[in-house]
Amino acid sequence: MNESDSVRDSAIAATALGGEVPVDVEAAYRRFKGGPLAKAGTPRWLLPVAAMATAAAFACAFVFTPLGGYASAFLTIFQPREFQPITLSTADMHQLRLFRNADEIGTQRVVMKPRRTYFSSVSAAQKHVAFALREPGVLPSGFGIVHSYFVFSPGALSLTFNAARAQAFARRSHKTLPPMPPSLNGTTVMLRSGDVFNAHYETGKNGRFFELIEMQAPRVTSTGASLQTLKRYVLAMPKISPALASQIQALGANSIPVPVNIDKQHAQHVSVDGVQGLAIGDNTGLGAGVLWQKDGIMYVVGGPLSMTDVLTVANGLR
C-alpha cells in the first residue's frame, strides 16, 4: 500500500466517523441519577461486601446514632477483640434508618477527615502505615494481574448529644422519643480511626474482584455518660424490636456489633488466621466475606467470591 492509499483511507474514515457531539453533562448526570439504570441491578454480591464495609467502618455506620451512642460508650470501656453479628430483618433495617441522621439528636462534626491516597505497591503503602501490612500468600484462580492499594489517613468524628435538638426533632417528625438523661445531654463521644489499608484485587476481566482491608482498631471516647445510661436511652427508643433489644443486651464485653440482614445474608463464626472470625455470606452464594481481629489489627476480606476462596485468602495472609 502506498502513501496516497493511506491518506485516502484516513480521509474516508474521517468523513464517515468524524463529527462533534454536543453534550449537556449536567442534564446527563441528572438523568443518570434519576433513571432506572443507576438504581437497578445492584448485584447481590454487593450485599456482603457492603456488610464488610459496614463492619470495617462500623463506628461510622453505628456510632453516630442513638443505637451507636450505645456502641460508642460500649467501646470506651474495653478493647474489642471479636465480631458479633446482630441479626436484623429488612423491616428492622428500615426502622433503624429513622435514626440515621445524628443531627437529629445532637451535633456531629468531622474533626479530622481521612484522606485516601493511592499507591502502586504494598511496599510503597507500608511507608505510610503505622503497622505491618500483610498480603495474600494465595490468590484465587484468575487473580494476580490488577492490584490497587489505598491508605486512609487517621480520622475523627464527634457527636455531642443535645436534648433540645432531640425534642425538636420529635415534635417535627411526630415521633415519641424517650427523654434524654441529663448526664447524656451535652456528652460528646468521639470516634478516632487509625490508619486503614485497602488492597483491591481484580482479574482484569469479568468484573471479578475482592477487597482486603487492614486497619487499626478505632477508639471511641466519651466525655460523660456511662455505658448504662447510653444503653437505657437506646433501648428506650421506639421501633427497637424486642429481638434486637435482646441481642444488644447479650453482646459480649469484647464484641464489635456487626449488623447482618437475615433476609439477605447469613453469618457464622469461623476459625480464621488462628483466631475466631465472623463469616458473612450472601444468601445467593454469589458473595462472601470474613472479618477478624488479630494483634490489635482488624482484617476484612470480601467480594464476589465463594466462601472457600475468601477463607483461603484470609488464612494465607503473610
Binding site: 484522606r115 491516597t117 493511592y118 499507591f119 510503597a124
Partner: peptide
C-alpha cells in the same frame, strides 16, 4: 510516591461522559 486519586464518581462522570458519548457516537 503518593498520588491523590479522585474518589468521587461525579468527578469521573463530568470528565469522561462527553468522551464516552463521543466514542459511542
Amino acid at each position: 510516591l503518593a498520588q491523590a486519586v479522585p474518589n468521587r464518581f461525579e468527578d469521573l462522570f463530568a470528565r469522561e461522559y462527553p468522551r464516552v458519548v463521543s466514542v459511542a457516537y
